[in-house]
Design a protein around this nucleic acid. Structure first.
Lengths: 165, 165
DNA sequence: AACTGAAATGCAATAACATAACAAGAAAGG
DNA sequence: CCTTTCTTGTTATGTTATTGCATTTCAGTT
């Protein structure tokens, strides 16, 4: 992994239309390889999340699904999200009860997030759960860590500049 | 801070009645010093959380409040919890949408939690948000971290033993 | 092509979590 | 005592998430 892979992209400009296409294509490839089914609903949900490039609530996603003619009951969205989260295409932000497309698809990762409380922009980066204070505490306690939620709330560079703080 | 302070207590036996009394007394002292009002409802909620020594949902707390004669509408519980969380007596577990009494009252801290997915026991420890991968990413991105959510999900020692895994 | 079992979807209902808005009461400070 | 502020009680509503069940679709097999 090169050093640039761990630089968050959420607070920077980038070629967005290409990033969507690439991400969809990568997801398709991976689903084929692993015999997973990227069905129309699932694909559409992933596409919405990539397009918006921000955290969306399940009901926002549901509204978008309705607009394009899919079922509009909550389970439709939640099931698609469950699939996408289970396979690492999407992450859930526990702090916001919302979902974002994974910014580092394909890499095994323990994601960590920076969430701007002013503009709600989210940047994904990597955490290292087994090193650091938490890993040490878990080893000391005999706790087996299977998954970590790491979310930092604060102010992103753009908002810090705007508000002059 | 001595090394023993970072050892989680959530997976170990301890003198529980003493720990409740001490924590309540400490909260009272601190509220007096800081001109905070530990009102009957707030005190009772803190007491419930200390007594149960596990994460309780707001509606579980509400049921307990009802049983002892307080108002039983959601805002009653949420307001007490808001106060207790704001002043560090209680933490919210974003992963569970539930609340636990702080295990390290008085210390300034960025809490981190280990949550057993089998028995729901929660142990609190310390995280070091500014060091480690997340801190480095935040500095690199120019993101100002104000608060961190660090929650590890996994299996506690007791459940690992029970299930033989 | 028909059969079968597993997976996915559609849908209705409901559960679980959380807040807004306003009236009434209690405490602190003058 | 009076005013201001904080706290509580209550009604109503908003938001997030799941359960259960019937139906359809899909992959693999006959």
């Amino acid at each position: 992994m090169s050093a640039t892979n761990i630089v968050p992209v959420g607070f920077a400009q980038h070629d967005h239309s290409a990033c969507i296409e690439d991400a969809i294509a990568a997801a398709e490839t991976r689903c084929e390889n692993e015999r997973l089914r990227l069905t129309p609903v699932r694909r559409k949900v992933l596409e919405f999340l990539l397009r918006e490039h921000r955290a969306l609530g399940a009901y926002e996603i549901l509204d978008l699904l309705r607009e394009v003619g899919f079922g509009s009951q909550p389970p439709v969205a939640y099931r698609a999200l469950d699939f996408l989260v289970a396979h690492g295409f999407v992450h859930k932000l526990e702090r916001l009860n919302a979902f974002v497309a994974c910014a580092h698809p394909g890499q095994t990762h323990s994601p960590a997030f920076m969430i701007c409380r002013l503009c709600d922009t989210v940047a994904e980066t990597q955490s290292a759960p087994t090193s650091g204070a938490l890993g040490a505490a878990a080893r000391a306690a005999g706790f087996r860590v299977e998954r970590t939620v790491v979310e930092a709330e604060g102010v992103c560079p753009a908002c810090a500049t705007k508000t002059g703080s």
